[in-house]
């Protein structure tokens, strides 16, 4: 395989630069730290924060459908808007936001390959201007349960010997540490991995400039190295969701896995 399975989901920084004023396009930044967007964002981009905007305030869950509709409306996103996500560190949180948009059935979603890093490396302009698009009308679908696995489904999946992908660091996988290297513990209470899971750290899907690896390299990594079967269902997991969102994006859209 020489090409991505769904190459249309990736856009370059050049494409984004050429669509800054396109009313059919909304550019969305999502980062670990909200200060990054504040210090400078792609001109015209709105911010969606994984914590304040996408997580329910009272339960350990994503926002509900009504809140998602409100969020899209406030960000000037309607059902037919092409939404381009980008952000820090290989687009990990951008993939998380992309995933939530797919959870509520948004059709046209893209990732700006390379995110903030590539935008910077390409010498493009940063803006600190306020962005307040006119509110839009938005109707979300029910959650797409096919892209989300809850505990009981994971258990059934595991018991039937299906593919489980642990995308955390090798040290977390082996139970030597309970958080990312260089990051403090955020509350994982037990070390180790789900029995049967193979380990492919999320970051291995990305190049140093924040872009995704080529189809050939991804195939080498997931298909040849860990023998992932693309036609067999896979559950990817990490700890709070941003790393597995990126791997989910890579497997589904770049490698064409089910």
């Amino acid at each position: 395989m020489a090409a991505y399975a769904h190459p249309e989901v990736l856009v370059t920084t050049e494409w984004v630069a050429n669509h800054l004023a396109d009313p059919r396009v909304r550019i969305v930044e999502s980062d670990e730290d909200r200060g990054l967007y504040t210090m400078g964002h792609v001109p015209g981009a709105v911010e969606i924060d994984w914590q304040v905007d996408l997580q329910a305030p009272l339960e350990r869950d994503y926002i509900d459908r009504a809140a998602f509709e409100r969020l899209c409306s406030e960000r000037g996103i309607s059902n037919d808007t092409t939404v381009v996500f980008y952000g820090d560190k290989n687009n990990w949180w951008a993939c998380y936001t992309f995933w939530v948009f797919k959870l509520y059935g948004h059709p046209e979603c893209r990732i700006m390959d390379g995110g903030r890093k590539r935008w910077e490396l390409d010498g493009r302009t940063w803006s600190t201007e306020r962005v307040a698009p006119p509110h839009a009308r938005y109707t979300a679908t029910e959650q797409d349960a096919s892209i989300r696995a809850l505990r009981d489904e994971v258990l059934r999946h595991q018991k039937s010997g299906r593919q489980l992908l642990d995308v955390r660091s090798p040290e977390e996988y082996r139970g030597e540490r309970m958080h990312m290297p260089d990051y403090p513990n955020e509350g994982a209470v037990r070390g180790g991995h789900i029995p049967g899971a193979v380990n492919v750290p999320w970051v291995r899907a990305c190049n140093d400039d924040g872009t995704f690896k080529s189809a050939r390299d991804l195939e080498k990594l997931y298909v040849r190295e860990v023998k992932l079967k693309r036609r067999s269902p896979t559950i990817a997991y990490c700890r709070i969701g941003e790393r597995s969102s990126l791997t989910w994006f890579v497997l589904k859209y770049l490698l064409g896995a089910t």
Partner: peptide, 10 residues
């Protein structure tokens, strides 16, 4: 001097 329980190397 590392702080635990926050999300960033501090």
């Amino acid at each position: 001097g590392r702080v635990h329980e926050c999300q960033t190397p501090v």
